Amino acid sequence: MKDRNHLAKVGLIHQVKIVENGLIDIPMLQVLRPDGSVHQEAELPDINEPLCLKILQTMQYIRLLDERMVAAQRQGRISFYLACTGEEASTVGSAAALEPQDMIMSQYREQGALAFRGFTSKEFMDQMFSNQNELNKGRQMPIHYGSKALNFMTISSPLGTQIPQASGYSYGQKMAGLNAVTICYFGEGAASEGDFHAGLNMAAVLNCPVIFFCRNNGYAISTPSEEQFAGDGIASRGLGYGVRTIRVDGNDVLAVYAATEQARKIAIEQQCPVLIEAMTYRLAAHSTSDDPTGYRSKDEEERWRLKDPLQRFKNWLDSKGWLDQEHNLNFIEQTRQDILKELKLAEQVPICPVEQIIEDVYDTPPWHLKAQLVDLKKHIEKYPEAYPKTSGRL
């Protein structure tokens, strides 16, 4: 993908420029320059100081959480983690433009959206340590969050599963006459899955009030975007399916907020899908199992660090007189201590009794699951050292 700084008013892409080889050139919505100044032609969204500070603090919280949990994985305290460093504006800015009744269907790098809705450090830690306090009884991998109270659908590992599910769920919202949308997050790599095409076509044909939010962060694990597709990103696919489409600078939190606010308005009023492609960059590794030095250069990473969404937003807030530097430093230090405290507490909480593993699927566990549970208990008794009694160090 080219690194563009095109400007567009908040709205739908309906005119594109045909360039060489018959390809299209799609403009990108941007409000803030990388240094935090406002583009002369840009329109600021209608957003107040308290909301801006909540967005900033959520972005800072997630960066601190990511740093702590990557370190915890390296220490052997959890098995796996996915950081969203560099993509905080995409996830937090979009979540801030939603309403509490809107359903969020996540891929696995949207912890910022969940934190914005009120997921606590304790809840994050209970999930990642799979202990008995975890909302899903410790049955998921780390970072596979879910919260019924916060309208955040539990994450699945396979890529793209949530895309057709979002079309179906939003169709149900439409049939029920709800004033709500579903937002579905995924990366540009997941847009190569068949579920993407099925989900978008279904939503377009049935006029489902769903926002498809693609985080185009440049890489599908180690595969760069130019090796994934020949067209102009993911936005062009939305146009192909007849879906209203917006491309936005994913490192510009004000632009992301404005784009999502507009997308929600269109989805509600016109009862139709909208695709947002957020152009961003994954500064972190794909996961704690990945080494990005094998497929990208330090120079490339440093160029994108100059577009850091956190620093860009802080500079704008400072220019508005909305950022109290001392208070912000105190918030960061207190948050760092809170995260570490909850981590230490969560790793000492016991895991759920093994008997619960066959519950909540059928009203009464059938015979074959009961038989499998007997076999599992025998296996654990044979290899007790491999199955700790708590969710602590692995």
Rank of each mutant, 00 (worst) to 15 (best):
G238V: 06
Y387H: 15
T91W: 00
S170F: 01
N251K: 10
M59K: 09
D290A: 06
I276N: 08
A176L: 14
Q262C: 14
R4A: 12
L376G: 05
Q107I: 00
I155C: 08
H39K: 11
R336W: 06
L373S: 11
N315S: 15
Y241S: 10
Y362L: 01
E226T: 11
E188N: 07
R77T: 00
L29H: 15
P350A: 08
S192I: 00
E326M: 04
A115L: 12
A203G: 05
L200T: 14
G392D: 12
S79M: 07
G233H: 08
E355Q: 13
P50A: 11
A346P: 02
L206Q: 14
I143D: 05
S225K: 01
K54R: 15
E269K: 15
L7E: 11
E227P: 01
D324P: 01
S236V: 14
F186N: 04
Q334H: 13
A8P: 00
N201P: 11
A95Q: 07
L394M: 12
N251I: 07
F80P: 02
F124R: 01
L310Q: 12
M28E: 12
V361M: 09
A204L: 07
A72Q: 05
D35P: 02
I221S: 08
P292E: 12
M153T: 06
D291P: 03
G187R: 03
